[in-house]
């Protein structure tokens, strides 16, 4: 990167760090921060949509749909989320391949599960073994996003379901008294009022989501944890590819600081949003703001 990096004498000087920190591998490490932010940017709205669907389903008058919604909300209770992460990545992958297998190879007679193997016809493989590397990475990342969305959708459904129940009952009754249908009451009365009650829970969820991003590593995506482990460590104890010893502790210290800054910034931003949204609301927070002026 810098011209002085070609001079071997810099090895013993502090300038060496400038050379080290701009190597190609380190660039991949920096880029993986983008992967994390991309995951957050996609997962947050998708999980919110999943949560909204789950909460609406739980409120449905059609009993089986309501059970389905309640089951989805109850899913995250009692079982560690990491179990779902590990489960869904394989289950979704196999589910997709199974569906494609049924559609693309209808005359394939061998069973799919043979002992400890899961065999589908070559045309049903996802992504196809002939497709370039980038598609494999994109597929892996999308599976991770979908997994995150399902798990955090269940959390969001829990929050939104609680928020829907927190809307004063009198509001719904008034709407019914005006002759609104169930659907109209839901969209025009319940949903607009729900958000204030949901916001504390949702901002909590955002913090939890931020702190769950390192789990991407477990889903096989080359994220910051992967690169920190790779770059910091020596390949073997004695013969190392890198001109330094075990620096993983420093790399992870960096990650720790990154997450601390990130959660602190989110906290400040969410505080501002909360202040803005409670302004003029008939809640204790809104009343306190009114008196403070």
């Amino acid at each position: 990167m810098f011209s002085f990096c070609t001079d071997p004498s810099v090895l013993s000087t502090p300038e060496w760090f400038a050379c080290y920190l701009t190597t190609g591998k380190l660039m991949l490490f920096y880029a993986s921060f983008g992967t994390v932010l991309l995951l957050l940017a996609i997962t947050a709205p998708v999980a919110l949509a999943f949560g909204f669907a789950g909460a609406s389903a739980a409120r449905a008058r059609f009993a089986p749909l309501s059970w389905l919604g309640r089951l989805y909300i109850a899913m995250v209770r009692g079982v560690p989320d990491i179990v779902f992460f590990l489960f869904f990545v394989i289950a979704l992958d196999q589910g997709f391949e199974y569906l494609r297998h049924k559609i693309k190879c209808p005359d394939w007679t061998d069973p799919i599960r043979q002992g400890s193997d899961f065999i589908v016809c070559p045309a049903a493989k996802l992504p196809l073994s002939t497709s370039p590397q980038i598609w494999h990475e994109i597929y892996g990342f999308s599976l991770a996003v979908l997994t995150f969305s399902i798990v955090f959708g269940a959390f969001a459904a829990n929050v939104l379901y609680g928020a829907m129940r927190a809307v004063p009952r009198a509001q719904i009754e008034t709407a019914e008294a005006y002759g609104m249908s169930h659907r109209q009451t839901f969209w025009r009365i319940l949903i607009p009022q729900m958000w204030v009650y949901a916001l504390p829970g949702l901002s909590n969820l955002w913090m939890v989501l931020v702190k769950a991003t390192p789990l991407l590593f477990l889903l096989g995506v080359e994220d910051i944890v992967y690169w920190a482990r790779e770059l910091g460590g020596a390949k073997t104890a004695r013969f190392t590819d890198y001109p330094h010893g075990d620096w993983r502790v420093w790399f992870f210290l960096g990650l720790l600081v990154f997450y601390l800054c990130f959660t602190r910034l989110s906290e400040i931003a969410l505080d501002r949003i909360m202040k803005r949204l409670t302004r003029g609301q008939a809640t204790m927070g809104g009343e306190a703001q009114r008196k403070a002026v």
Binding site: K211, T213, D246, F252, Y259
Partner: peptide, 22 residues
């Protein structure tokens, strides 16, 4: 409280392990 609540437990485990290793 801020340090331990503000960072992911996963990273804390990694950091602690490599710290103890050093």
């Amino acid at each position: 409280i801020f340090v331990f609540r503000g960072s992911p437990l996963f990273i804390q485990f990694f950091f602690a392990y490599f710290l103890f290793l050093s």
